[in-house]
Design a protein around this nucleic acid. Structure first.
Length: 399
DNA sequence: TAATCCAGTGCGCCTGGGCG
DNA sequence: CGCCCAGGCGCACTGGATTA
């Protein structure tokens, strides 16, 4: 079915503006509803914003009229008002998400919350760039590309008084964050977290940090360095009597399950590597997250195909890898569907709760508070030591 | 006719399919 | 089954085509 996108003269809008309410955001979109015939017997409901030319396919009704088009002065007014409304919604969503996704990530989020269609992803990406350039949205509404970051920026110190105050604040900070003992020293376990996609690192690194759990993106098959670094940490803590646990979260598709099932043998292959010398035989690998039970419980959207990025479909017998054991066992066990990690990112609250529930199987949720309590004595000691050192260094009289 | 739209192109990073 | 590398992506730029 192909939607026509006719030019609708402004005078042809008999309907009064309709406030389209998003219950999740508590935000209204001012839209006009227009019934447009698609075929002789079919009618589609199109949403247009205050009339005028339909800038894009109006399937979702979220894209402002005239966006991405050359605009007359009145058209620009309409565009700016609608774009402002959308910007408010995006900013509100940013608060609930808790981090800045990539432009592509925003498309998935808009798909979930604004019912943006896949076909509108390109237009929505362009719109985000346009709104960031024009100042309607802050530049950092999208994640900064770490690979393009600046180095060696010159920093100019302020007045001596302000600089001295800054140095004192830094000293206080170092006293407050003094940590001569490990979070794990009084625990029975030691945990590390490995994920398949960078978005999951963004989603979880704050919680993992709170529990002092190292987290990394394995990018599918982990490389030797990633594994060796993880194994050295496990080795050191196992030597101190800890039960070691690797939490792993990957996509729910044939390749994702294949990777997690291969994790133990992948690690075992490095047991004799230089500066590793550790066998994972006692390691517990706990795959969590995009498992069938969680997907069912939260009604995560399933994709009813096994399409790969190259366009093939592993569920078709014509696919080269269709007969491979990992594909066939997946098809037998689950059928022709998959769930990608983006499904978790667009539901950040459920995603964060999932990680907390998983951590809770091994640690009490107040473990970070308990650790701060343990540290407070040491931090008082370092404050005293700092005071004594400063007195000695600057010939001050102790209070 | 000036403004600007837009398809095409280039670049480097990221991802994960599938080759060896 | 490890990991190479093709393709996807975000972004910027260009110049012929289109439009106010």
């Amino acid at each position: 079915m192909r939607l026509r996108t006719p030019k609708i003269p402004r005078s042809d809008h008999p309907e009064a503006p309709v406030k389209v309410h998003d219950p999740l955001l508590g935000i209204n979109f001012n839209m006009r509803r227009k019934m447009v015939s698609i075929a002789d017997t079919e009618v589609a409901e199109l949403w247009v914003s205050r009339g005028g030319t339909l800038a894009y396919s109006a399937k979702s009704g979220v894209l402002p009229a005239f966006a991405g088009k050359r605009r007359s002065v009145p058209q620009d007014e309409i565009y700016r008002r609608d774009a402002q409304s959308l910007a408010s919604a995006i900013l509100k969503l940013r608060e609930t998400i808790g981090f800045s996704p990539s432009v592509r990530g925003w498309c998935y989020i808009a798909e979930e919350h604004f019912h943006l269609t896949k076909g509108e992803f390109g237009s929505f990406s362009d719109l985000l760039v346009e709104m960031r350039k024009s100042g309607l949205l802050p530049l950092d509404i999208c994640a900064e590309d770490g690979a393009r970051q600046w180095y060696n920026d010159e920093e100019i110190d302020p007045t001596p008084e302000k600089h001295a105050q800054y140095v004192v604040e830094v000293m206080k900070h170092h006293c407050a964050t003094y940590r001569p003992i490990s979070f794990w020293s009084d625990k029975d376990v030691y945990i590390q977290l490995l994920v398949e996609k960078i978005d999951l690192v963004q989603l979880w690194k704050e919680i993992a940090g709170r529990f002092h759990i190292p987290i990394a993106n394995a990018r599918g098959w982990s490389d030797l360095h990633c594994r060796a670094t993880m194994m050295r940490r496990f080795r050191d803590w196992e030597d101190r009597g800890k039960k070691c646990v690797l939490l792993y979260c990957g996509d729910h598709d044939p390749a994702g399950l294949n990777i997690s099932e291969s994790m133990m043998s992948n690690l075992a292959e490095l047991k004799d590597a230089q500066k590793v010398n550790w066998h994972p035989r006692k390691l517990k690998i706990h795959r969590f997250g995009l498992n069938a039970d969680f997907i069912e419980a939260h009604g995560l959207p399933k994709l009813h195909n096994l399409e790969t990025s190259s366009g093939g479909d592993l569920s078709h017998s014509s696919h080269r890898d269709h007969t491979k054991p990992y594909v066939q066992s997946y098809l037998r066990k689950y059928g022709k569907w998959k769930v990608e990690a983006n499904a978790l990112v667009v539901r950040p609250d459920a995603g964060r709760k999932l990680l907390l529930d998983t951590i809770q199987k091994y640690l009490p949720l107040d473990a970070p508070d308990q650790f701060r309590e343990r540290l407070s004595t040491y931090q008082r000691d370092v404050s005293d030591a700092m005071r004594a050192t400063l007195c000695k260094e600057f010939n001050l009289t102790p209070l």
